[in-house]
Amino acid sequence: MLNYQAIQDTIKIITDTLVRTTEQNVFNEIKFDISNLINSNGFILTVIGYSVVFLALFLLFIAFKSLTHVITTQTHRKYSKATKIPTDKKELNVIGDVTAAISVALHLHISEIHDFESTIITIKKIQKTYSPWSSKIYGLRQHPKRF
């Protein structure tokens, strides 16, 4: 005999769960209350928090602005000393696009040199003094002659 009771129980559990889930009113637990904001010092936390984030990034901005200035001045001084040509600081500020263009040009130039070199090597004649030890005439590829 099939145990219908157990099967019925299982079905009842499933249907109960389905009903319970659909009947749940998801919006009944949360209510809008502005006093929570005041009572929990949320506003003060917001002001302090946001100010600190701004302060941290502002300090980073100041630090790197100054760092850039220091490095550019140093480079300018070194360059002027080495070349002994008076240059403007702004001339040393190379934009990224220019660097990329120079890099590509150099890369292409170097690649071409390589191709040219290999051509020379291919057509170059190498003179070697004759030696019977390396001669192809006496090599093993020659079949022995029968007499």
Binding site: D33, L37, T46
Partner: peptide, 16 residues
Amino acid sequence: GIFLTLMAALTLGFTL
């Protein structure tokens, strides 16, 4: 966005 939403969540009854 972080801090304004923090305030909004507080008014909806979430803890700090």
